[in-house]
Structures are given as C-alpha cells and as structure tokens.
Simulated scan of single mutants.
Amino acid sequence: MSAVNAATARAVRPAELPRTRRAPLTAIPGGAERRGRRLDIVRAPLHSKSRVPFFVLCATLMIVSLVAVLVLNTTLARGSYEMAHLQGEVAQTAQDVQGLQEDLRAAETELPDKARSLGMVPAENPTMVSIRTGKVVKGVVKGTDE
C-alpha cells in the first residue's frame, strides 16, 4: 500500500473518529410507558401472493387459444378442400348439362326427318285432351295459317 492509501484508510476507521456527545434519550408521553415495555415485536411483512396461479392462468389461456386457432385453421382447410371438390363436381355437371342440351337440339332438328323416314305425315287438324277438364280440344298445328 502506498502512504496516501494508508492515511486514507486510517482516517475512515470509526475507532479513530472523534466522539461527539449526543443528547440524552427521553421517553415520549404515551409511548413506551403505555405499552409497558421498551421494544415491541414487529410482525413480519405479509408475503405477497404467489404468482404461480397467475402464470398458470396465462399459460392455460395461451394453450387454449393456440388449440382453438389450430382447430379453426384445420376446419377452414378441410372446408377449402371440400369446396374445391364440390366446385369440380359443379363444373363437371355443367359440362354434362351442356352436352345433353346439344344432343337435345340435334335430336329436335333430326326429328322431322326421322318421322318422314318412318312414313309419318303432319296432322291437319290435331285434337288433344285437356288434363284439367278431361275434354277433347281441337288444336292448331304450329306454322299453319289457320
């Protein structure tokens, strides 16, 4: 140690500090006299509540929310796949309907030719039966000027 440090260390020591006189202690009225003893036992401060239940609650909420998001995501993905499958079926059905409509138009145009080839002739005065009334009704052939 250097001489400066030794002098500083000695100056800080309480044994070497000059003693000062303190005022004598006096009792405050209603203080220790009232209680009958000079020192009272002080109750230890109450321990704060444990934070473990709070952390358990937070962890539970996080886990439940993550599971809910996972279930929601899975459900939406399954719905998306089902929707894509159903859209494919709708497209296939639309193509089938369009093909059948083309077949029907072709059959309508071929019908008069097939009827003539079978020896059929157009009816001059067709008669029909009304389903509602059950009576025979005379009709007019489409395309004639009667």
Rank of each mutant, 00 (worst) to 15 (best):
E16P: 00
R13D: 15
L17A: 12
P45F: 10
A32M: 06
V140S: 09
S2C: 09
V71T: 12
M128N: 04
V52H: 09
V56D: 06
A7N: 07
A77P: 02
N73S: 15
E124N: 05
V90P: 00
A44F: 01
S130G: 08
F55N: 12
C58A: 15
P122K: 14
V137C: 06
K114F: 05
S65P: 00
A107T: 13
Q92K: 12
K142M: 10
R51Y: 05
R37H: 02
M1T: 11
S48C: 01
I28R: 06
S65G: 11
A11V: 02
E102G: 06
V52Y: 10
P29H: 03
V97H: 05
V97W: 01
V90M: 10
L17M: 04
A23N: 05
R10S: 07
L25E: 02
L61C: 12
S80L: 06
L100M: 14
A27F: 09
T74D: 04
E110W: 00
E108H: 09
R37I: 03
N5F: 06
V137W: 06
R22T: 04
P122L: 14
R21H: 02
L111C: 03
F54H: 12
K142Q: 15
G99T: 15
V121C: 00
A9C: 04
S117M: 07
A84S: 15
G88D: 02
V52N: 09
A59R: 05
V97C: 03
K135S: 07
P14Q: 06
G79C: 04
P24M: 01
R116S: 09
A32H: 06
T74K: 06
G79H: 11
T133I: 01
E33S: 10
T74R: 11
A77R: 14
V97T: 13
R132D: 14
H85K: 13
V42C: 02
P14M: 04
V90K: 11
A23I: 02
E102P: 00
N73G: 12
R22D: 01
A106S: 10
Q98E: 14
R132C: 02
L104M: 03
K138A: 13
L46F: 03
K138V: 12
I28W: 02
D96T: 11
R35M: 00
A3H: 08
T26S: 07
S2V: 05
R116L: 09
A68T: 13
G119R: 00
V97F: 07
G99P: 00
R38Y: 08
E146K: 09
P126G: 11
Q101L: 10
P14H: 03
M83H: 03
L104T: 01
C58T: 14
V121W: 00
E102D: 05
V97A: 15
H47K: 15
V137K: 08
P126W: 13
M120Y: 13
P14E: 04
L61F: 08
G139S: 05
V12C: 01
M128H: 08
L104F: 00
V69C: 06
E16K: 09
N73K: 03
R132W: 01
T20E: 10
K138H: 11
A6Y: 03
